[in-house]
């Protein structure tokens, strides 16, 4: 467990020194329960926000291999709200036009809470209890298309749309083992 945490969150920090500046990514997203790749935009909107950074492993003229570390929160009305720490390995191809498609494979930890009053069965009866939430593993696969606003600047801000498919596991043991979701992000990446 600690080894996984080290690879996901601590090891990337050792790469900080390689960077002259730190890329920051902020995105707002619409979360939904859905089968991956069957829906794009869904209603009603369940809002979420993600803030993260990225660490570059290798960079060539048109491509880079990187790892992200993100914190995120979503609110799915009537179902759940979740707060997560999440890391992704990604590959980006940067076209000279400024367009930059990426693919990312991620894993993280999520803690979800009910969005409605919860009652816990204890000693033969239901009682109102403070919701301590549920622990989830949070694997994901994402594809995004970005656009670098300054085509010739390697530190250029980038706007992106990201289609993220992810799963919540374990979800409801013996009932619904895994719940799948999609997040549609609209974000900005910039350097500080």
């Amino acid at each position: 467990m600690y080894r996984i945490l080290f690879i996901l969150f601590i090891f990337p920090l050792t790469l900080f020194g390689q960077e002259n500046s730190i890329p920051i990514s902020v995105s707002f997203f619409n979360e939904s329960t859905a089968i991956p790749f069957t829906r794009f935009f869904t209603a009603p909107v369940h809002p979420g926000i993600q803030i993260g950074t990225a660490f570059v492993y290798s960079e060539k003229e048109h491509s880079r291999l990187f790892q992200t570390v993100n914190a995120s929160y979503f609110y799915h009305n009537y179902l759940a709200q979740g707060i997560a720490l999440h890391s992704e390995f990604g590959y980006e191809y940067r076209h000279s036009s400024g367009l930059a498609p990426s693919a990312l494979l991620g894993l993280g930890y999520m803690h979800t809470f009910a969005t409605t009053e919860e009652f816990t069965f204890k000693n033969g009866r239901y009682e109102k209890k403070t919701d301590r939430g549920n622990s989830r593993l949070f694997p994901s696969i994402s594809f995004d298309i970005g656009y670098y606003l300054k085509r010739d600047d390697v530190r250029s801000p980038k706007i992106f749309i990201r289609y993220q498919s992810w799963a919540e596991y374990p979800y409801s043991p013996g009932f619904i083992p895994v719940m799948t979701h999609i997040n549609l992000h609209l974000g900005l990446q910039f350097s500080i």
């Binding site: 009053e117 919860e118 009652f119 816990t120 239901y126 919701d131 549920n134 409801s172 009932f175």
Partner: peptide, 9 residues
């Protein structure tokens, strides 16, 4: 919902 006898309305 989560098979833990914690129910919501």
């Amino acid at each position: 919902m989560y098979s833990n006898l914690q129910v919501v309305e």
